[in-house]
């Protein structure tokens, strides 16, 4: 599998996702970091990752400037061709700002940056990102964000539920940010574009953060 990791000014988790993918079995030669000023994504790319961080210093709104970076035109057209796109944390915010996912991520309800482990629930395994997981299964993963409070109009939330597009939820008693429907991760209607707030890439090493996140990478790589 060929994977392109997009790097914006302020992105800081590109090496975390790269390490998680190498741990999961991806050859380093199949992983490429792509600077946001680039105007092409390598041919035969199977997965594009928008990693976490603080692109453009979170100016204006989180992800708003990155959503208009030159490379995002290519990300959008790749997504339209069916290339899988995974946005984690700031990547999720960029996907919402660019219109690849509905809704928006507002400031955490408690107004604080939250950096801790949370309890997640697999809300569906009908996705290339969760097919090796069990629906309803709980896992612990770290979050580290200031703007993770998912918000969308009531009709959009109803549609996400009706179409089984909520992939990960916070446990009802462990919602760290006030997110609607306890949403931690949603997939688009093509079921190829996932936005995810928790850092499952930081839950792939038994020495640091546990290995609960490995099931997502196993799902991506070993359908």
């Amino acid at each position: 599998m060929k994977i392109a990791i997009i790097v914006f000014p302020g992105t800081n988790r590109e090496n975390d996702i790269r390490a998680a993918l190498v741990t999961a079995g991806v050859a380093a030669s199949n992983l490429q970091l792509i600077w946001h000023r680039e105007t092409a994504i390598p041919a035969a790319t199977d997965l594009i990752v928008l990693p976490g961080g603080f692109s453009y210093g979170d100016y204006l709104r989180c992800g708003a400037m990155a959503a208009h970076s030159p490379i995002m035109r290519e990300v959008k057209s790749a997504a339209a061709r069916g290339v899988a796109v995974l946005g984690i944390c700031n990547g999720f915010q960029i996907l919402c700002e660019s219109g690849l996912l509905p809704g928006v991520l507002l400031s955490n309800q408690g107004l604080k940056f939250v950096c801790r482990e949370v309890e997640l629930e697999v809300a569906t395994n009908q996705s290339i990102y969760s097919r090796k997981m069990v629906k309803g299964h709980r896992l612990r993963a770290p979050v580290a964000h200031h703007d993770g409070n998912y918000f969308a109009a009531p009709e959009v939330l109803a549609e996400l539920q009706d179409r089984d597009q909520i992939v990960f939820k916070y446990a009802a008693d462990d919602n760290p940010n006030g997110s609607a429907l306890n949403i931690a991760g949603i997939i688009d209607s093509s079921r190829r574009v996932l936005g995810l707030m928790p850092h499952l890439e930081n839950a792939t090493d038994p020495l640091a953060g546990g290995i609960a996140g490995r099931a997502m990478f196993d799902s991506i790589l070993n359908g």
């Binding site: 204006l60 708003a64 400037m65 208009h68 928006v104 507002l106 918000f151």
Partner: peptide, 9 residues
């Protein structure tokens, strides 16, 4: 419409 405001919110 394109950058300064997000119509969702």
């Amino acid at each position: 419409q394109t950058v300064i405001a997000n119509p969702v919110i």
